[in-house]
Amino acid sequence: MSNQSESPNPTSSSNKITLKTSDNEVFEVEEAVAMKFCTVKQYFDDENNNNVTSGTSTTLIPLPNVESHPLAILITYCKKHLEIKANNADNKKEMEIDMEHYEREFLKNVMPQELTELILAANYLNFKEALDFFCRAVASAIQNKSVEYVRKFFGLESDFKPGEEEKLREEFAWSFEGVDED
């Protein structure tokens, strides 16, 4: 296995870390995966600072703001991310192509509602690559779409005062040109 530069500790990469979700499910993941979650990494670093003997991963890290469903998806995404990175360690372009391909396939199996959960989980775990990816996915889903479409997508209703919306529509008329049909 290639050198995991993002691994904070020189410990062996076979170390496992246990994560416990808000719905009390327990996930055992490789250290390299867990270290992509900066919130977990931070927890780990703090632990290390407080307890020199730590390193054997018996620590159970509670994640009170993450449910098991999005965490399982994030772990899969993260593993694949690391795998693609390791496979193309010396070719950034190839890595980007593989990653793009994987992300395209990934999105085919994700419902819009799941994206919210995933953004929330990635945001809490401070998993930057995943957060960027999910935000990009939502951005492209609402790009060039009508106001009504975006409302439906986010499950929102207009709460403007009567006449207010029409006024804004007039003011921002330029941004309504060429919008996709719903």
Binding site: C135, R136, V138, A139, S140, I142, Q143, N144, K145, V147, V150, R151, F154, L156, E157, S158, D159, F160, E165, L168, R169, F172, W174, S175, F176, E177, V179
Partner: peptide, 17 residues
């Protein structure tokens, strides 16, 4: 999310709520 769209999208979506 909005910063990853375009100025037209950001402007238009201000009518959402």
């Amino acid at each position: 999310v909005l910063s990853l769209t375009t100025p037209a999208d950001a402007c238009r979506t201000s009518l959402v709520s």
